[in-house]
Design a protein around this nucleic acid. Structure first.
Length: 776
DNA sequence: ATAGGGTTAG
């Protein structure tokens, strides 16, 4: 006599299961409902769904347990519809030995994928008197929560007369997963008050709430509780602990838990990798990824998401390259929106906008985050107009409603090109849907208004937002700075200090450049020292660039050069460019040459430095120097960054490239330019040809100057707006010195205010004067 | 022989 019962239980592979099945049939024991159900469960355990179904169909006798096992098998393999259909058959079955019981309901409730089914099964369970079973009601609580109906879940929970820990856990986790943190805290406190213990499931449910509550202390208490009750070695508990510590910024603690673990699973690795990635330590994240692969654990989509972000952070670093290669080799599932979004984001951060767009286009489904990511990709790579166009397209053609992140990605683009009218539209949209209370959105709005020339509006917004955050302060200080209001910026900084708001690196970039624009040398120096001595902030290269600019402009060229020499960081083109600019203003040819040689090494392709150098020689009257620069430039066959300017007319941003004739009103613009040129010459404008690098005749040089993008934009602004309307121009590079001079004259003869923002600052032209000091 | 509640993401 074969002991089928035991052999079915211990059978580990399909190859052993099949002959056992045959033996069962031959021996005539296949009529035994007990054994058939065991066989069915065996096939289910081994993942052979067709065999499960066959066994079930051919079972001569089906008990409740047989049915329950069949339903459970369907649910386990994700065939929810079949599970419910099977349940329906059970209800309709005439057999008195096959009735739904208290075991049937938990598993059937698990199969409900929408509220309608959930309610139906719920009322049936109620009618048949099963809701008083704790397993059934816990399942109901979980089901309602899973579908997002926490109130219904709560109702079931509150109506239960006897609750075991499982019910509490179901309710807690339901609230957690729906982000109802306040309700979680309340329920948790009640649980503690009643003196109920916590088990592993309680702990793993409650730990993720510490993050939105920003409460590391609670997390720590729970950790201690786990150690005390011997749960800290549990895999789920450890994973939740790692995640909690990492997200609250206590990476050392997360690392400790990670190191102390005996066995780790995919979630463990994902949590620790994502923890390092999120805190900006991409190197550690990538190293851990390698370790993970060595330990033989296969990465999944979540790993890929962290990996993509880490690669984006590392840029083109070699360490990043290998992970990048991994992502490409492995490919990713286009149907997975989150992974695809992460890849779009990665390409955007690596400045590969075209690839980002390609991945985006190939996605079969997109959500609002996909659009946000794409807009950010364009916006952060200087393609602000494209970013704005996509933002409009998304709403008009795809009917996507912008959310907080969308506004935070498109507003910087508006700020960048001076798209004030679009920005105002977004402002009113934000007001309508109640996003103005969001600190990120309001910071972006302050920045947008300031950069679009509306300091007053920026100021009003700044005064409305909560002053507890650093962002709005940084934005307004930077805004005041680019408008040349250095003293006001400095006094706001003092106010910030008085209110106990801790400045960050960005604050000091804003502040130092504000000092530089306003010529507040001593104050700038003080701030630079304060940065480290008071706030412990190590200066970035950017801060050095500001300082070099500050010192250089005021004529302290040697001090500026000395500062560069003391740098431990490698000076970039910003630093040397600031020095070269200062040398040009003060006619220091020797130091200028030094700066230029560094610039040609770092950023040889940039035409701007050759112009600056040539202009420096012109100012010092060294004409052979100019010849040298010209031949150098020709020799290198420079690909210059195309200069462009934009002006917003009738809610449309018009972009003009230098020397481009493609605008529909090109003829009228040219005519206007000729008229303007004649007029300004008559009141004393003399073209400065040292801004033209090409070696051509004087006539041609004049043409080149008049076809500079800023002039095209001004002329277009004049012919397409009413007389005396202020004109606002944005230029992507720094305004050409000759154009700057010409604009002064144009503002006089047209009696217009002309506001020009270039890559560096604002220039307010009025009555033949400009607000800025010592330009060119 | 069958049952509920748990951790990681753009």
């Amino acid at each position: 006599m074969v002991d089928f019962s035991r052999r079915l239980l211990s059978c580990a592979t399909l190859r052993l299961a099949r002959p056992l099945h045959a033996l069962l049939l031959v021996s005539g024991r296949a009529r035994d409902a007990f054994l058939v159900t065991k066989l069915l469960n065996l096939y289910s355990r081994l993942g052979d769904l067709p065999s499960v179904v066959l066994t079930f169909r051919h079972a001569p006798v089906k008990t409740s347990i047989t049915w329950n096992s069949m339903i459970a098998c369907y649910v386990h393999h994700g065939f929810l519809k079949d599970a419910l259909a099977c349940f329906r058959c059970l209800i309709l079955s005439p057999s008195p030995s096959a009735r739904p019981d208290s075991f049937t309901f938990p598993v059937t409730i698990k199969a409900c994928w929408d509220l309608e089914w959930g309610k139906r099964i719920h009322s049936l369970a109620y009618k048949l008197g099963f809701v008083c079973n704790v397993f059934v009601s816990a399942s109901l609580v979980h089901m309602y929560s899973r579908l997002g109906f926490t109130d219904d879940a709560r109702k079931v929970f509150d109506e239960m007369t006897i609750k075991d820990l499982g019910c509490w856990n179901a309710m807690l986790s339901g609230l957690c997963q729906n982000g109802r943190t306040a309700a979680v805290t309340e329920l948790f406190e009640r649980m503690m008050m009643l003196g109920l213990p916590m088990d592993k499931v309680t702990v793993t449910s409650i730990l993720p709430v510490c993050t939105p509550l920003q409460n590391p202390l609670l997390g720590f208490c729970i950790h201690v509780y786990c150690i005390k009750h011997g749960m800290d070695s549990d895999l789920f508990v450890s994973n939740a602990l790692i995640d909690m510590y990492a997200k609250l910024g206590h990476l050392e603690e997360a690392q400790k838990v990670f190191k102390g673990m005996v066995d780790r699973d995919l979630v463990t690795w994902n949590s620790i990798i994502s923890g390092y990635e999120q805190t900006g330590d991409a190197n550690s994240a990538l190293n851990l990824f390698n370790e993970m692969q060595q330990s033989g654990i296969q990465p999944d989509r979540l790993t890929l998401v962290s990996l993509a972000s880490a690669v984006a952070q590392r840029g083109d670093d070699r360490n990043g390259q290998s992970a990048y290669g991994f992502i490409l080799r492995r490919g990713w599932d286009l149907h997975d929106i989150i992974v695809s979004n992460a890849i779009v984001d990665m390409y955007g951060k690596l400045s590969k906008v075209k690839l980002a767009q390609e991945v985006f286009d190939r996605m079969p489904k997109r959500d609002v985050i996909s659009w946000n990511t794409l807009i950010t990709g364009y916006s952060q790579n200087g393609l602000a107009n494209e970013a704005i166009e996509i933002f409009k397209y998304m709403q008009i053609h795809e009917g996507i409603m912008p959310i907080q992140g969308t506004l935070a990605s498109v507003l910087p683009a508006c700020a960048h090109v001076g798209a004030l009218q679009e920005g105002v539209k977004i402002h009113s949209y934000g007001l309508r849907i109640g996003l103005l209370s969001d600190i990120f959105v309001s910071t972006c709005l302050i920045d947008m208004y300031a950069k679009c020339g509306r300091l007053a509006e920026a100021m009003v917004l700044f005064e409305q937002v909560s002053s507890r955050f650093t962002g709005p302060w940084n934005a307004i200080i930077a805004g005041l700075g680019v408008h040349g209001h250095g003293k006001k910026a400095a006094s706001l900084f003092s106010e910030m200090q008085e209110q106990g708001i801790k400045p960050d690196h960005v604050t000091f970039v804003s502040l130092l450049s504000a000092c530089s624009h306003a010529g507040l040398v001593d104050h700038g120096r003080q701030c630079f020292h304060q940065m480290k001595s008071v706030y412990g902030l190590e200066p970035w290269v950017k801060h050095y660039a500001c300082m070099v600019d500050l010192l250089g402009r005021s004529g302290q060229l040697d001090a500026a050069y000395e500062l560069i020499m003391t740098m431990t960081l490698k000076p970039d083109s910003g630093v040397w460019g600031a020095l070269l600019g200062a040398c040009r203003i003060h006619g220091n040819v020797e130091l200028g040459k030094v700066a230029a040689s560094h610039l040609f090494e770092i950023d040889a392709e940039n035409m701007g430095y050759y112009v600056l150098l040539s202009n420096m020689y012109a100012k010092a009257g060294k004409w052979d120097g100019i010849t040298e620069v010209r031949s150098l430039a020709r020799h290198k066959q420079l690909q210059k960054t195309p200069g462009w300017s934009s002006v917003e007319v009738n809610k449309k941003v018009n972009v003009f490239f230098t020397g481009n004739h493609s605008h529909p009103q090109h003829e009228e613009i040219q005519k206007e330019l000729r008229t303007l040129l004649a007029k300004i010459k008559s009141i004393g404008y003399v073209p400065d040809f040292s801004f033209v690098l090409q070696d051509v005749e004087e006539d041609e040089k004049e043409n080149i100057l008049s076809s500079h993008s800023e002039r095209l934009a001004i002329a277009y602004g004049i012919i397409s707006t009413l007389p005396k309307t202020p004109i606002q121009i944005y230029k992507n590079l720094r305004v050409c010195g000759d154009c700057h001079n010409a604009t002064k004259f144009i503002s006089k003869i047209t009696e217009r205010e002309i506001i020009m923002r270039d890559s560096n600052r604002f220039h307010h032209f009025k009555d033949g004067k400009c607000s800025c000091r010592d330009y060119w």
